[in-house]
Simulated assay, not measured.
Amino acid sequence: MSFFNKVLASVGIGAATVDTKLERDQVMPGEEIKGVVEIRGGNTEQKIDDIYLTVNTQYVKESDDHKMNVTATIDRIRLATAFTVSANERREIPFSFILPIDTPVSMGKTRVWVATGLDIKNAVDPADKDFLQVRPSKLMEAVLEAVSALGFRIREVECEQASYRLRQRLPFIQEFEFVPTSGAFRGRLDELELVYLPISAATADLHFQIDRKARGLGGFLAEALEMDESNIRISVSMDDIPVLTQKLQSIIQQYS
């Protein structure tokens, strides 16, 4: 019977299960996440080689003119070394970790989740998935509010494969696509794309792509040749927040 149970456990029937309980699911990049992993033994004793958490998201990757969704691991946290869980045993492992500052926020199509896995040799590894609501940091929120104050509305937010120019630790960037709906830039710009790259909790690089609206024959030719786009990079910090709207307005005006 014991051998039969082991065979079943190896294909996931009657095997150990895992359930992660987060203290809270709303968090900002750079904040601490706490919780407990609950492991319940199955019908037979099993050796757990490893137990880990991963923070994940998906991004769009292009290959041979085709787009595909790819899962990316933002962080991996090992919680325990090898141990044995007895049949029907219940064990809890508390954890805490800092959410990386370059974690994308939960806006638009972006989803972020914590996955918990048990590494069990010669068996199906049980896993658990818990979604996070990642809110913008104070600096990112100030940047988004400043762009909104200039009359722009967010049209789309999506994680995309990072170009060589924007590639940092992760293989993707989160892009915010805005359209002007009011204010001085309505009728002057088609869209504004923003990539927020945090340097620290208090500083970030902003990469803007400003797409000017075609005006006249020359404008239409420039648009056809993709000469109507300007790429701009600026650095901002928490000290800029009181004047952020004016700072962004001045920069965007130069290229609109």
Rank of each mutant, 00 (worst) to 15 (best):
I199H: 14
I77T: 05
P100V: 11
Y196L: 02
K21V: 04
F97Q: 07
L170D: 15
I13N: 01
F83R: 07
I252G: 02
E145L: 15
A184M: 10
R215M: 05
F3R: 01
V27K: 13
G219E: 02
I48S: 01
K213T: 15
A224V: 09
S163E: 10
V195T: 03
K129Q: 13
T73L: 08
Q254L: 11
K121T: 15
I77K: 07
S235I: 01
R155Y: 08
R153L: 07
T103F: 07
A15R: 05
A184V: 11
A149H: 15
E158P: 00
L197N: 06
P126V: 14
D102W: 14
R155N: 11
V157A: 10
Q253H: 12
Q26R: 15
F95W: 12
M238V: 03
Y164D: 09
R91S: 10
S256A: 15
D64V: 00
R186V: 12
E160Q: 04
I234M: 14
G151K: 15
A123P: 07
E193Q: 04
E38S: 10
A222S: 13
V114D: 02
D119P: 07
T44R: 01
V60R: 11
E92V: 03
T203C: 06
R233Q: 03
L217S: 00
E38N: 11
E62K: 08
R135M: 15
D228H: 11
E62N: 04
G42V: 05
V124K: 11
L206F: 08
G219P: 02
L166T: 12
E175P: 00
I154M: 09
Q161R: 07
A72M: 14
T245K: 11
E32Y: 05
L118T: 06
E145Q: 15
K129Y: 12
L221E: 04
V243L: 01
Q249A: 13
T54V: 09
A127P: 00
